[in-house]
Design a protein around this nucleic acid. Structure first.
Lengths: 301, 301
DNA sequence: CTGTTAGCGCATTCAC
DNA sequence: GTGAATGCGCTAACAG
């Protein structure tokens, strides 16, 4: 059996409260006493029980993440950012993978269970109104990343502006025939970033007084291959675009591949702009976490 | 305040012990009583406190994973497999990212802390003897994946055999000049998979009676770009290889790119075999988790 | 400054 | 079958 706080108290010849104090480095402890306790802890190899502390504090010292485990760099990057922020504050990071609508619902119901996490981060999944009511009922802070709901905080990664900037970039380069390759606008999980980027794209074109050509709008499955197919179709048009804004790097690569297969070159023959998942993600990861921890901290006061 | 087991007991007009029994579906409860309790639980929206249960049971119902958060598909795949197995058993998955030797040590010391996790999975990181002693002292089950230590269980992904198979494949295709592109043999984190694959490669060549040509052995940073550079060098040799075994898919892609840049084609001009991270990972993920849970379960009996 | 005493929420012997 | 009592390990007032 591993030693408890009582063992330490006895060994150091003090009360358990004192041990608890040095554990949470309270200032109200005489230096010599603190030293004795510390010594006892060391000698016994004592480690406080996280669970006991948690039940006593009525906090979990953990935050949960619900997300589809994408292979995309953006996913890992965000996770990395979140982990860093969480680890720094001695919190645990509990992750849940969601790959089907069923698992999604199960997670939304179980993950925030009482005393499991102090806060929840939901990535790339938009909860329903009912889900949100449930969260509120449990009074658990929730932050959305790459998703949205009117009643929930979310980390703002302005995809609209992002899409606009990317498109403007192409316009500045002198392009007038700019195509868009992105995900389906509607999907079962409610991903929204691609849609936002599309809106940004549209806004940029309108502001520049350029035409919105429906034949330049490609939306489909998020994959290397699909983007490649779209690009081939674009190139086959009687008046092919001179530039493509791909909604993600994965898709941008598909575009480039199609271009290469045609014996064309980028950017000489046709420009391609991807959306740098990774850079965005770094930003995301960092600002993401401040929210939930701040919230959690606030609530626990 | 969320309702406790006492509230439920009172509402159902029974003792807390009975509530606890229906919670853990013990058979020793009369059906009518069980129904009353269940109703009370439902009406109150009661959820048992995980922390309280944990301190009482003196288990954590959680398992930890320490790993470098690679962007590689293999990482996500393994994580996915682990998550699935863990979730299925109502355990929580706590993840820790390690990106520097300092963080590594910190994690090895803090993650297995008493009452935080019932078991630990370490991916792609080889603990030192001291680390292992520490784990044993804490009597916490540890399983290694893509790493090894004489005293620890590990999930066997036979990279040696894998490398041998890949190389044999090329040999069967009639190739005699086969190069290897992999990671550094030694590295600060103690990654071993590439080294094992190299050994498999060597074994296959020897068995086939082929020469081991030092100029065909490329080892360096694990990156798309580095593999590309290596491939260019290989192609510049007076007698370039007719096939390349890349230690990972990332590197294989780099090879292919270099080949394409030269105006050559694969596999007509030169064959490239990668190491399918994902397939291996799927296997890994599944078999990985049985170990620690089995171990954890065993210990908790 | 430090020790004593209560909880925290649940699981678990024992008696009834 | 069911309930009262006790313990898990720790934190947090409350007294000295």
């Amino acid at each position: 059996m591993s030693p408890t706080i009582y063992d330490v108290a006895e060994r150091a010849d003090v009360g358990i409260a004192t041990v608890s104090r040095v554990l949470n480095d309270s200032p109200r402890v005489r230096e010599t006493t603190r030293a004795r306790v510390l010594a006892a802890i060391e000698e016994l190899g004592y480690r406080p029980s996280a669970s006991a502390r948690r039940t006593s504090l009525r906090k979990t010292l953990a935050i949960g993440v619900i997300a589809p485990f994408f292979t995309r760099p953006s996913f890992v990057e965000r996770l990395r950012g979140i982990e860093a922020a969480v680890a720094e504050r001695e919190f645990d990071l509990i992750v849940h993978n969601v790959e089907s609508p069923e698992k999604r619902d199960a997670c939304f119901r179980k993950a925030p269970r009482r005393q499991r996490v102090d806060g929840l981060i939901i990535m790339s999944l938009s909860p329903t109104d009912e889900d949100v009511r449930y969260f509120q009922e449990l009074s658990i802070p929730v932050v959305l990343v790459d998703a949205r709901h009117p009643a929930l905080n979310r980390v703002v990664v302005d995809d609209v502006t992002g899409g606009e900037l990317a498109t403007q970039h192409l316009i500045k380069l002198g392009h007038e025939r700019i195509a868009f390759v992105g995900d389906h606008l509607e999907n079962p999980f409610g991903f929204i970033s691609s849609r936002d980027r599309f809106n940004g794209y549209r806004t940029a074109l309108i502001k520049a007084g350029l035409d919105l050509r429906p034949d330049y709008h490609c939306q489909g499955e998020h994959s290397h291959f699909q983007a490649q197919v779209f690009t081939e179709e674009l190139l086959d048009l009687p008046e092919p675009p001179t530039a493509i804004f791909a909604s993600s790097d994965t898709q941008a690569l598909g575009c480039l591949e199609a271009i290469r297969k045609r014996g064309l070159h980028s950017p000489e023959d046709i420009s391609v702009v991807g959306y740098d998942d990774i850079e965005v993600a770094a930003y995301l990861g960092l600002s993401t976490i401040h929210q939930p921890l701040y919230e959690a901290g606030l609530r626990s006061v």
